[in-house]
Design a protein around this nucleic acid. Structure first.
Lengths: 338, 338
DNA sequence: CAAGAGACGTTATACGTAAAACTTCGAGGT
DNA sequence: ACCTCGAAGTTTTACGTATAACGTCTCTTG
């Protein structure tokens, strides 16, 4: 067995320092002012260092009834977007002495297994993306404090929500394209049911529909480059006048649209304009660089974690959507004169 | 406070079922054959269901002295490669009743904070990428069972290692390019010190050096598209004969090389061939599609987890590198006749 | 000079679980 | 009639920590 001798406990430290276990706990817990002399405290710290003492977290968690650990439930790890969310959330959590454990929904779709069977750590709360909604029933069953990311604020779960202002981003995209003169649109839409995608569809339809002489078709696609390729190719080869602008639900789908357009011999932006949403590194790796909506993933994670911490402290999290920003690059231009 | 009344304990279940707490533990732990009657067992299960009982993991972990949780230390979350590693590792872990907690090194480089302060869960073992080597001193201090991913097998840590056969991948790339007739190479190299990158450099130099009339320059770059862009642009505009092939340490660097070549007005693969390593989704999103080395990230994660489980059970993990595969696409061609 | 007030500790207890050790009871063997 | 044995439980204990409750002893102050 790798664990040669068992780890030292606070009692071992006490013995080494010639004090009681309680004194060790007081000193290392920094609650000793006026209870233990500075000289004894130093002796305890020295003994702890000497023995390489590490508190047993299971025991501490049991004693305190809380773990200072929260779970971040994300749909998948395959996108740098959620990496940013994690980074922001973890930073804020660390500032408050909390740790963050990640629970990515298992590969593919199927309903997530019980997250708590997987993330064995005991938890104080949960921060969950709406895209991993299948895991939520288990979470609700546990009555854990919950904050939802990018989810319907009027949803039935009754949990607090923190949202990006996706609707505004879609409006900016629509206005940008309409302003360039586009009238025939293709919406390359993510095919998974989630509030964040419903918003895109609704807002785009509203905005485009409000302009005169416009048309809008929708092609649902799985969120992968090759899935998007197939869906976009089919939609763009359909009979009838070809769309002059392809609005994609995210940058990955846009990459698929690029491939489809290349296959069809169409040029971006000369023949067709394309927009994305996320502003991943991928967006500037594409040729031409992609016009897209920048989402501040880290800020999103930060705000989500602040909201969760507020809930944990019994406060009401402050609301307000997180602004997003249209980034115009080379993939959009006025439609060709034809 | 969200947590209205406290959660039910096994004692509450016992009371509801009219038995002792020990009986509850036996039944729910599935150790009751011959100790509790089937009728009573069912009554206990019913009571547990009724109350929505969930065992307190902190208490269980304390009692058992193990957590069935391992930590996966990754350099960052920004790449789908480690997403694949996680997926594979988590699947194998789940099959053995283990959970996986993710510890991404904090944004940027700086030495990682104590991983165990952050991942508050108590741990049974650690699976760590060599790219996050800065976190390792803390880990070693804890004497936790450790398996390294993609790390020097003869390293001083004395931990078991599971490696991809990167060296073979680099050989395949070199042979492919040499076979096409290339002689002047640029190595766009990751600038972070890690065994996995040292292998690339060593193997490429050996293989290219073994052929007659070859030259090899190296340009170190940070692993980001824009960092690679700058490094590649500088190296390609340097005086002297221009390289005809750019070998990149990973696909992200290759994306940077693409941008640099576009800026310099050079065409891929007509003027310059480019290769990557990883085979991310990015590789086929690029135009032209990237010739690269496919790494099976999920298998990597699986093998790593199996090795760690073996160590935890006191067995010796079985060795053997994981094979990789050259995927030839459109970014490589014979050098132009000039 | 009595009485509080710190300073500097210690002892004892509880958190919820798993499991070892013990009890009780009836059936079967000799 | 006595012993053994298995079934069906119960009682008890330990895991390592944090902290409430309890002693001393010394110093200050009315």
């Amino acid at each position: 067995m790798a664990r040669g001798s068992t780890r030292p406990t606070s009692r071992d430290v006490a013995q080494a320092a010639g004090v009681s276990q309680a004194a060790v706990s007081l000193v290392l817990g920094d609650k000793w002012r006026g209870r233990v002399s500075a000289i004894t405290a130093e002796r305890v710290r020295e003994a702890a260092r000497e023995l390489g003492y590490r508190p047993n977290l299971a025991a501490r968690n049991l004693r305190l009834g809380r773990t200072r650990t929260v779970l971040l439930v994300v749909p998948a790890l395959t996108t740098e977007f959620f990496a940013g969310v994690y980074t922001g959330a973890a930073r804020v959590a660390a500032e408050h002495g909390f740790g963050v454990v990640l629970y990515p929904s298992p590969e593919g779709v199927g309903p997530a297994r019980d997250p708590f069977a997987s993330a064995q750590a005991a938890l104080d709360g949960v921060l969950a993306s709406s895209m991993a909604a299948d895991a939520l029933t288990a979470i609700r069953g546990d009555q854990l404090p919950l904050v939802m990311l990018d989810s319907d604020p009027s949803g039935s779960l009754g949990a607090a929500t923190v949202n990006l202002d996706i609707a505004d981003g879609v409006r900016q995209v629509a206005d940008h394209l309409l302003g360039l003169g586009h009238r025939r649109f293709l919406h390359l839409a993510a095919d998974i049911p989630s509030w964040t995608f419903e918003v895109r569809a609704r807002e785009l339809a509203t905005r485009v529909g409000a302009a005169a002489g416009t048309s809008l078709r929708t092609a649902p696609a799985p969120i992968s480059i090759d899935g998007a390729l197939a869906a976009a190719e089919a939609a763009l080869s359909a009979p009838g006048p070809r769309p002059t602008a392809v609005v994609c639900d995210d940058d990955k789908l846009a990459a698929g649209a690029y491939k489809a357009l290349r296959r069809l011999g169409l040029r971006i932006p000369d023949d067709v304009s394309v927009t994305g949403l996320d502003d991943l590194a991928l967006a500037t790796a594409l040729d031409p660089e992609l016009t897209t909506v920048r989402l501040d993933a880290e800020l999103f994670g930060e705000r989500g974690m602040r909201a969760l911490l507020a809930v944990l402290e019994g406060r009401t999290p402050d609301g307000g959507d997180i602004p997003v920003e249209l980034v115009v690059r080379a993939s959009t231009a006025p439609p060709s004169a034809s």
